[in-house]
Amino acid sequence: MENLSLRLTRVSEAGMYRLDCRERDLHAAIAETGYSLFRIDLEKVRGKEDFITVVARAINVPDWFGKNWDALSDTLCDFSWQPSPGYVLLFCNGNDMFGMNSGDYRIAMEIFADTIEFWRSQDKPFWIFFDHSIHEI
């Protein structure tokens, strides 16, 4: 567990990964770091609107959230309402493309990659874990 906690602090390693440990081990490691964890259940997602809504609820977006890709990108690069030394999104119960078509899936993955790079430029770790295999963009 200590190794996972230490690894989570390395900004240069932060990125998108398939979860390869037990979820409870990830929770314990995150607790040691003091990071904010957002568990996002994708089981009922059936398209872009559902996906954005589920993510927005999980990260407790502010009232100004616009319910579109730009708003999602903006909020993932803000988190002023949730100050933390680092952030972790854990996507659970999703299929290979989160219940979206390939175009929307690709946009979501690009937003995630841009978000990780933004937080890296701020010297803050931003991790995304998937509890299933993902396809390459």
Rank of each mutant, 00 (worst) to 15 (best):
A108C: 10
L8Y: 04
V61L: 03
F79E: 02
C21W: 14
L4W: 05
T9M: 14
A113W: 06
L90T: 04
D78P: 00
V88F: 06
I107K: 09
S121G: 14
H132A: 05
T53I: 08
A58E: 11
K44T: 14
T9V: 10
F51H: 02
S121R: 05
T75C: 06
D74T: 09
T33F: 05
A14W: 03
I116L: 03
A58S: 15
I111L: 09
N60G: 12
F79G: 00
Y87N: 02
C21Q: 11
M16E: 12
G94K: 04
L6G: 10
R22L: 15
I40T: 01
Q82R: 09
L89R: 01
I59K: 00
G66D: 08
W69F: 07
V61W: 00
S36H: 11
M109A: 02
D74R: 05
T33K: 02
I137H: 14
F98D: 03
H27S: 14
C77V: 11
F126N: 00
T53W: 07
I128N: 00
M1L: 14
I137Y: 14
A29F: 03
H27R: 12
W119Q: 05
M100Y: 01
I59D: 03
L26H: 03
W64S: 15
E13P: 12
T33S: 03
A56L: 04
L42C: 07
R57A: 12
A113Q: 12
L4E: 08
E23H: 13
W69Y: 08
F129I: 01
G15I: 02
Y17I: 09
R57F: 11
R57T: 12
A14R: 01
K67R: 15
G66M: 09
S12R: 13
L4M: 07
G15A: 05
R24M: 14
V88R: 01
T115Y: 06
N93E: 11
H132V: 08
W127M: 02
W119F: 08
T33V: 07
D114G: 06
M109I: 03
C92M: 15
D104C: 04
E23V: 15
E49M: 12
F91M: 09
T33E: 09
T75A: 02
S84V: 04
F129N: 01
D20W: 14
R46P: 06
D114K: 04
F65M: 05
S84E: 03
